[in-house]
């Protein structure tokens, strides 16, 4: 079939539009990458595009030599590991149990778990609950309140339900007990959906910053995302980072090359690096989650 002029014009427009979309999506990030690798005093003059003009590592050296910055990196990493692990245990356990059609009380339990997705007490009652549970200024406030996500549980359950029924029966005949069925058969076969849930949980934990805003006042419990919030919103932390640099570099270097802009840029790059670096390779697992979820709806 011949393509008409209109279709050719549309195709060209479409390609141009897609390139435009890529540019406006990537440019702000690449610009910050360049600024983070550029001499701070030079950045002030403007005109940095996606290449550093006066290349330097000093912005990264500054943030990484600050102990509270490194501490926040450890807190963020720790909550990703612990939070993802705990979430995976609770979600998988519930999902597997709820695939059993003859489990007494199954419908009630699903109903019981689904209600809070419609109604919640809001922020203030949570605030008091955490005070009562001594979760304020406690590392566990990052882990426990996010340990179960109903929607992910449904995704895992849908996946397990789609596994062939005969497998479990065969295992029972072979003498496997119920723990072995779960750990040796169901979990290994559910690896693709596990990967999806692990990634979603890890991204959620890495990206969360409002938990620190609401419930944390102790500096050594800040997460990296919250440090970024402080850096862009409050001059105090930027100054502290710059002072560290001045003290370190003092004597030798006559000019302190680090500015708030370059510190911000370095912080943004470090805080987003794990996602930007890993996401393109793991994309299919994220999309898979949406697909399984959509079938359920």
């Amino acid at each position: 079939m011949r393509t008409s002029f209109g279709e050719k014009a549309f195709r060209l427009f479409n390609i141009v539009f897609m390139i435009f979309l890529c540019v406006i999506t990537l440019y702000p990030y690449l610009n910050q990458l360049a600024v983070s690798l550029n001499d701070g005093q030079d950045t002030i003059f403007g005109g940095i595009t996606v290449f550093p003009r006066e290349f330097t590592w000093s912005n990264y050296e500054t943030v990484f030599s600050n102990s509270s910055f490194v501490g926040s990196l450890v807190i963020s990493g720790g909550r990703v590991l612990l939070g993802t692990l705990l979430g995976l245990i609770l979600i998988t356990g519930a999902a597997y149990a709820l695939t059993k059609k003859n489990l007494p009380g199954r419908n009630f339990l699903i109903f019981f778990l689904i209600i809070p997705t419609f109604i919640s007490g809001g922020l203030i009652p949570l605030y008091f609950l955490y005070r009562y549970l001594h979760l304020m200024n406690n590392f566990m406030v990052y882990v426990l309140p996010m340990a179960f996500v109903f929607f992910y549980m449904i995704i895992v359950r849908t996946y397990i339900q789609s596994l062939p029924n005969g497998l479990e029966e065969a295992a029972i005949i072979d003498g496997a007990n119920e723990v072995q069925i779960l750990t040796r058969i169901i979990i290994p076969l559910s690896m693709p959906v596990m990967a999806t849930v692990i990634l979603w949980l890890a991204v959620t934990h890495w990206n969360d910053w409002t938990t620190s805003l609401y419930f944390i006042t102790k500096k050594d419990l800040y997460t990296l995302q919250f440090v970024m919030y402080k850096v862009i919103k409050e001059a105090e932390l930027v100054n502290e980072l710059a002072v560290t640099q001045a003290r370190m570099g003092g004597g030798g270097n006559q000019a302190v090359a680090v500015t708030p802009e370059s510190i911000k840029a370095a912080t943004i790059i470090v805080a987003t690096f794990p996602i930007v670096a890993l996401y393109p390779f793991l994309q299919k697992y994220f999309i898979q989650g949406v697909m399984i979820g959509a079938i359920k709806e």
Binding site: I91, L109, L113, L129
Partner: peptide, 21 residues
């Protein structure tokens, strides 16, 4: 036992705060 974690979590972090209303 497998379900207990999710149920306990939902009671503590979802149902108890509802009382706070």
């Amino acid at each position: 036992l497998l379900l207990s974690g999710a149920v306990l979590w939902t009671i503590i972090f979802c149902y108890v705060p509802m009382i706070g209303i």
